[in-house]
Design a protein around this nucleic acid. Structure first.
Lengths: 345, 345
DNA sequence: CAAAAAATGATAGACGTCTATCATTTTAGC
DNA sequence: GCTAAAATGATAGACGTCTATCATTTTTTG
């Protein structure tokens, strides 16, 4: 009735504890035959390593490193806070984060190289859609350090897993929300991106355009504004655009820098429908105030949590937890999370 | 640098390990003075019990019991599956569930009474808005067995916590989604409830009405249909209503029994906007097929997970995990979770 | 077949906690 | 101050795993 221990496995395989241990922990000096017997016993009895006991014996601590884009981006500030909080909560776990110049492949490569040889158990990196990182990524993983991509993916074969939302689905979701909110009437929609070299932005754009084209033919899209996630740039561009097109019925901002968008909107008499990404402080306020109507969020807490659980499973060599997919979540002013202060009782 | 052990605490307090143990585990036979010294050392060093080690030494297993409404309700079938899956995943944990006649206070009381004296570490119960359960609930908690309410709340003072969504917020969310989707045009909206004696249904109704009244005055609400979550009843009532009011622009079904709603809709030429609750199989299909437009879900996986984490924290006498609030989540056809089969890589 | 190499066995100690037992010291009661 | 009761100390063994060491057996090699 109790789960089998390694001693049970050894007994069932007809070998000593030491040999069983050598097999499951790959310490070498075992014959093929012993290996087979032990492995058979393992699957037979359904042995699973008691990680708690193992960590206890080793005083095991985990160290995970996050590589995040630097800069004032509110979303990544949130990410940093979450990482800090998780680091204090999780047992035997230290979490570090390194700020890397945003969208800079060379800088990222240098930082990855700097991690080589360090005592690290896992790396989570906000990916870039570039191939020049392969040597460093594969080098780390060759040393047994799992690398997962977070929020924005790396090439598939260069990371153990991607933790983040499906950005095509996110774009489609935004399109359908705004489309439905036109109530079948025609409309003029302005799209606002950060940088189309970023994979997530491209994906969102693509999803949005697909759904509008397929299901909302009465809606016209104005030429895209690329705002580089820069508040000042965005405010200026949007103010101009709203002046030349006072009949804009909706805006979809698929990147960051939405403070600039708020500033542009607040100065205008029109109140188009607005959908943006990431429920950071100013987005929450704008939602409450009626400036924004939809916020699509990727639940960063869950992403960090999933990334950590996954990296632990990978180095513990344990079946990874059943992955609840990370889905874009829609916030209206009515289903906002309460302030963290007011704990639910 | 390493977290202090009970031995450290004992040394700091100037007492033996045995005494420190007697204090932290409340075994009695300790003087006031010793108690103070030990407790001071505990807070001083920031001692936190190593639960893993403790469980290891005791071969501790946890047994949690869920009391769920019986019947064919697809949502609770899902809940049952999740509980089963979690029971297989979690270490040292057995999860049982007991089916209790739905909305039956006496039956629930009897089952709660039956749990007294059993070797149980925690109870999660789908609450009823009734006061007659107080003796049993308090009895269990008096024995040190935490009771949490799940999905539908119990009176506040009779449970340790409520794990579930804010149903008023859920109703408001539905209202705003449907309201916005009218694009400022007038509309005729049909509400469909299960049983207004159920707290969650009442709350959703209230939230919905509030938002419509406040922000969408052009929308008229038809008289509520109470369908008792019964597919046949619902199909009939809705078919009738659609016949007499072919100009219904939207439907909000705030309870269960949506297969009946689907059957009614499918036979009609009109395609009103439809918002329902809980992303069960048939709702997912209807969303994909365009019969439903919005599904508001409470993420049952997270609820079960949160309930289990909380109950563990309560009996381990450990600070409970930071509660991410459980929020109503909106699904469109575009942000549906992938099938569980196709694991994310 | 002897010597070297490889494989295996046996076992002790550590990790932090819990349980239990027994000896010793301190306090309270009279 | 003596006895009984209460409080404290000391310590061993268990939980399951890891690490390490050393002895012994088996296999390989020439």
């Amino acid at each position: 009735m109790h789960s089998p221990t390694l001693t049970d496995v050894a007994r069932a395989a007809g070998v000593s504890y030491a040999t069983a241990d050598r097999v499951v922990n790959r310490r070498g000096s075992v014959s093929e035959k012993a290996m087979r017997k032990v492995n058979a016993a393992v699957t037979d009895l359904g042995y699973i390593r008691n990680v708690a006991a193992a960590n206890l014996s080793q005083k095991r601590t985990y160290r995970f490193v996050f590589l995040l884009p630097d800069g004032p981006n509110a979303f990544f500030q949130t990410i940093r806070q979450i990482i800090k909080a998780q680091g204090q909560t999780r047992e035997n776990t230290t979490l570090d984060h390194i700020d890397v110049p945003a969208f800079d492949e060379d800088a990222l490569r240098a930082h990855l190289a700097g991690l080589r040889g360090q005592k690290i158990d896992g790396v989570a990196v906000v990916g870039l859609d570039a191939n020049g990182l392969a040597p460093e990524l594969n080098g780390l993983q060759g040393q047994g350090v799992p690398v997962v991509s977070l929020i924005s993916d790396l090439p598939h074969d260069q990371r153990a897993a991607y933790i983040g939302i499906d950005n095509i689905a996110a774009g489609k979701t935004a399109a359908r929300l705004l489309g439905l909110a036109h109530g079948g009437q025609p409309g003029l929609v302005q799209l606002l991106a950060g940088d189309l070299t970023a994979r997530d932005h491209r994906d969102r754009l693509e999803g949005f355009q697909q759904v509008i084209a397929a299901d909302f033919p009465a809606i016209t899209l104005l030429p895209l504004i690329e705002g580089r996630d820069d508040n000042v740039l965005i405010q200026k561009a949007m103010t101009d655009r709203l002046a030349t097109h006072p009949d804009i019925s909706a805006i979809y901002s698929l990147g960051a820098g939405n403070s600039g968008l708020i500033d542009a909107l607040i100065a205008q008499p029109q109140r188009p429908l607005v959908a943006v990404h990431e429920l950071v402080a100013h987005a929450k306020t704008a939602l409450t105030d009626g400036l924004f109507h939809f916020v699509i969020d990727q639940r960063p807490e869950e992403e960090i949590d999933a990334a950590l659980n996954l990296m632990r499973a990978l180095i513990d060599n344990v079946p990874p937890p059943p992955t609840k997919p990370i889905l874009p979540t829609i916030y209206l002013r009515d289903n906002l999370p309460p302030h963290p202060e007011q704990e639910s009782i």
